[in-house]
Amino acid sequence: MEFSLLQPLRGDYLTNQTPSPKTIWMSAKVVSIEGLNVIRSGKLVLEDVNLEIHKGEFVGIVGPNGGGKTTLLMTILGILQSSKGKIEIFGFNPYPTNFRGEVGWVSQTAANIPTKMRMTVRELITMGTVSRIEWWPFSIRSNEKREKIEKAMELTGISHLADKDISRLSGGERQRAVIGRALASDAEVLIFDEPLVNVDRSARNGILKLLDKLCHEQEKTLLLVSHDMAAIRQSAHRVVYLDGSIQYDGHPDYLPDLIDLAGLRGIQHVHQTDDQEEE
């Protein structure tokens, strides 16, 4: 399907404003962050971040470079330590080590797969099912695992590429494979860091459709960091504008435009100052 801004890929859930059973179901808290402060190399990167993400929500995080988007993700994942505040996933704090595979991580494709290795799509996705050290791991996999792998490939639409070398795939196909790996882990919450970088336009739309499908058919909770404002506006239920602290948290349609956001950061619009000077 040809993509245009006039025909957004957004599902009908946004136009359907009446409360539905889904709204009630969505009220279950998945990620809960309270008063989070994070210091990196002596600098306060995140200050007093409060965020609640509910089951089935699709939350987009936008913001300027250095605004703390990746820092927030890394803190949620437990890779970075917070200096203050509380993070809970499914109501408990999983740190430092007892993650239970509720969260799936999809990083940027380019940084994701070592370039010096040969590996098929199936082999890559299989790695998503490894959540603990098993005594009999070498290629002897249970039917349950195999089913998960096949299902993940089917969902991401890459079943036909199963035996292809990942280094020979296009950017979009590779990104799907990486999403497939996160799906194979059976995670309820999927966290994406710039999944739309390094993919061409049609692949971008394909990935957005896939995200939509994951959210609405598979009932996954999605948290996505992206520079692609248009993509977030058309796909996400909720947008969070992060610049050190949360500056906006709400429906994408009401996201203030970039000039207003710059104003929030104390930057005056250039033309506005010129006008004022003329006055």
Binding site: L77, G78, I79, T97, N98, F99, R100, G101, V103, G104, W105, V106, S107, N112, I113, P114, M117, M119, L124, T126, M127, G128, V130, S131, R132, I133, E134, W135, P137, F138, R181, A182, S185
Partner: peptide, 23 residues
């Protein structure tokens, strides 16, 4: 033999492996 899969998962993407619950 025991740690192969865990090592491979860690090699491909350390962050994802950690999030999956691997040490």
């Amino acid at each position: 033999f025991v740690l192969h899969d865990a090592l491979l998962a860690t090699t491909i993407d350390a962050v994802a492996a950690r999030v999956q619950g691997l040490p």
